[in-house]
C-alpha cells in the first residue's frame, strides 16, 4: 500500500487517503480506521465520512488542532485489516431487469455488444462489495462490475428516478434508495427498502457487506413489493465465516 496522505479539507476537516483507486484492501483500511475511531474516539471529532479509499474526518478546531488530530490518526497506522478483508454477510436483493424498471438496459447491451439477457446474467451472477454509503441517504456504491458491461454515466442526468432503481456508472453499480435525480444508467429495480429512519443504523447495507442481485419476474416483484410494504418480507442474508 502506498503512503497514507492526510490533507486539510478546509479548516474543520481532514481527508485521510489510503489511495486513489477502488480496491478491497483500501476499503478494508478505511473500515478499520473508522472502527478504530469509533472504539477509541478522539475528542473534537464531529463526524466521519468514509468512502472508497479515504475518510473525511470533520472536527472542531476549538477542541483539537489539525496537527494533534493528524498525529493521533497516524499513530493508529498501520491498521489490522485481515478480518475485514474476509467476506462477511451477503444480502440477496430480488431485482427486476429491463422494461420500465430498467430503461437503459438496452443501451448498456448495445454499448457492450451483448444481448440484454447477457447483461443481466453478467450483472446478477456476481457478488459485490459495498464500498460506501453516500450521495443520498442509504445509497450503496457497489463494486466491481464485470468490465464488459461497464458504461459511463448519462450526459444529461434524469430529474426523477424511482426509488429502488439499480444503476451502472463506469465499473460501479448502485441502488437509488428513494426517488431522486441522477445520472446512472438504469437497468433494473429492487422492491427492497434500503433506508429506514426507524432502523439503527438507518441504511440497510453497510460498508463491508456483500450484495447479490437475484433476477425476478413481474409477478414476484409485485408480490415482494407488497410484502415489503406490509413489513413481512424477510431479506435473504447469507453469512460467510
Amino acid at each position: 500500500m502506498q503512503e497514507v496522505r492526510i490533507l486539510p479539507a478546509g479548516d474543520q476537516a481532514l481527508l485521510v487517503e489510503f489511495g486513489r483507486h477502488i480496491a478491497p484492501e483500501l476499503s478494508a483500511n478505511v473500515r478499520a480506521l473508522r472502527q478504530s475511531l469509533h472504539r477509541i474516539p478522539i475528542n473534537g471529532i464531529l463526524d466521519i465520512i468514509p468512502s472508497y479509499a479515504s475518510l473525511l474526518v470533520e472536527y472542531d478546531p476549538s477542541f483539537v488542532s489539525s496537527e494533534v488530530l493528524s498525529a493521533e490518526i497516524r499513530r493508529r497506522l498501520p491498521l489490522k485489516t485481515e478480518e475485514l478483508e474476509r467476506k462477511q454477510e451477503l444480502f440477496v436483493l430480488p431485482t427486476i431487469y429491463g422494461g420500465e424498471f430498467g430503461p437503459d438496459l438496452d443501451d448498456v447491451a448495445d454499448h457492450a455488444g451483448l444481448t440484454a439477457e447477457e447483461v443481466v446474467a453478467l450483472h446478477a451472477n456476481r457478488d459485490y462489495l459495498v464500498y460506501l454509503i453516500g450521495f443520498t441517504p442509504g445509497f450503496p456504491y457497489l463494486g466491481s462490475l464485470d468490465e464488459r458491461i461497464a458504461m459511463p454515466r448519462l450526459t444529461n442526468p434524469r430529474l426523477k428516478i424511482p426509488g429502488g432503481s439499480v444503476g451502472i456508472a463506469g465499473t460501479q453499480t448502485g441502488i437509488y434508495p428513494s426517488e431522486s435525480p441522477g445520472g446512472w444508467r438504469l437497468i433494473g429495480q429492487t422492491p427492497i427498502s434500503l433506508f429506514n429512519l426507524q432502523a439503527d443504523p438507518p441504511a440497510l447495507l453497510q460498508p463491508g457487506v456483500w450484495v447479490r442481485f437475484r433476477p425476478v419476474d413481474d409477478m414476484e416483484f409485485t408480490l415482494i413489493k407488497q410484502q415489503v410494504t406490509e413489513g413481512t418480507y424477510r431479506i435473504d442474508r447469507i453469512s460467510h465465516d
Binding site: 476537516a13 481527508l15 465520512i49 473525511l56
Partner: peptide, 11 residues
C-alpha cells in the same frame, strides 16, 4: 473527476 470522497461544508 476524482474517486468519490467525502464533501465538507463550503467545499
Amino acid at each position: 473527476d476524482i474517486l468519490t470522497d467525502g464533501v465538507p461544508a463550503g467545499a
